[in-house]
Structures are given as C-alpha cells and as structure tokens.
Amino acid sequence: MAVPMVCYLVLSAALFSIGIFAFLIKRNIITIFMSIELMLNGVNLAFVAFANHWHQVSGQIFVFFVMVVAAAEAAVGLAIIISLFRSRNTLNVDQINLMKL
C-alpha cells in the first residue's frame, strides 16, 4: 500500500516546527545546537520526498551538501561551545549575554 506524499511533507514540517520550538524554549546551549540539527533533518526529509516525487536526483544531492555543511557546522559550533564554557563556566544561554568578558 502506497504512502501519500503529503504524509512525508507534514512529518517534515512537524520536525521543523518542533526544532524551532526547542530552539526557543531550551536554555542549554548544547540542546539549542541539537535543535538546529533537528531542523536541518526536517528539511532534508522534504528534499528527499520531493526528489522522489519529481524523479530527480538533484534533491538528494542537496541533502548530501546539507549533511556536509552540518558536519562542518557541528565541529566549529561545538568548539565554540567548549571555548565558551572555558571562559564562563556555564552552559545556560541566559548567563551568556556579553560579547566580551
């Protein structure tokens, strides 16, 4: 039995919305960073669903590039979090409110 394409798209919209909501309400900087990854995954699902619909490989290539950029972003972002934790000794974003310390 075939799955309606709209189910995939609604699932990807739900993942994206949950990612935005987690980004807004979470106070731990690592969890905020993880919700960005969740948003990227929601968009990736929509890309793959549309690639299936149009029978084009381009959508999957897009997902490949998003994965590459997400990997680079995770490496740099986590390094920033480590250096932030060294100077502030906290991971709470409400206490990280100065550009310079």
Binding site: V6, V10, A13, F16
Partner: peptide, 16 residues
C-alpha cells in the same frame, strides 16, 4: 505549512 501541503495533496500523489 500543513494546510498548504493538504490543499496540494492531490498533485503530490503517492510514494510507491
């Protein structure tokens, strides 16, 4: 987002 997808659901079809 969800209502936009639902109004276009006939043109999307099924994923076999």
């Amino acid at each position: 987002l969800a209502s936009t997808f639902f109004t276009l659901r006939t043109s999307f079809g099924n994923a076999r």
